[in-house]
């Protein structure tokens, strides 16, 4: 089993999707099929970061387990897991006039 300290790989804030792309490219290369991602010291994960993490985790053929997630981080993952596939609200909006400057 391989253990990754996430804060050492990408810092204490998980902000952009790109940072996770880099991390998962590295995880793919490990021979071990079992990987533990340690979230200790991660103080913030963005919605995009959590969304990308879930997508990339599904895309690689390894058993990845997360440990030491703070309540904030857990709740962001919970929001992403419970979210539907679309948030398009534009069609429900009343039309507005365009002001020319």
């Amino acid at each position: 089993m391989k253990k990754i300290i996430l804060s050492k790989e990408i810092g204490t804030n998980v902000v952009t999707r790109t940072s996770l792309d880099t991390l998962f490219s590295k995880l793919k290369k490990y021979k071990s099929k079992e990987i533990v991602v340690d979230f200790s010291k991660i103080t913030f994960i963005s919605r995009s970061g959590a969304d990308e993490y879930i997508k990339l985790k599904k895309s690689i053929r390894k058993n990845i387990k997360e440990v030491n997630q703070s309540e904030e981080v857990k709740s962001m993952f919970a929001v992403i897991s419970g979210a539907g596939s679309t948030v398009e609200v534009y069609s429900q909006l009343p039309p507005v006039r365009i002001n020319t400057i």
Partner: peptide
């Protein structure tokens, strides 16, 4: 208002 050029679910929310 949520229309995204990225087609996967989870996009267009930021």
């Amino acid at each position: 208002h949520g229309i995204s050029t990225k087609k996967e679910g989870g996009r267009g929310r930021g």
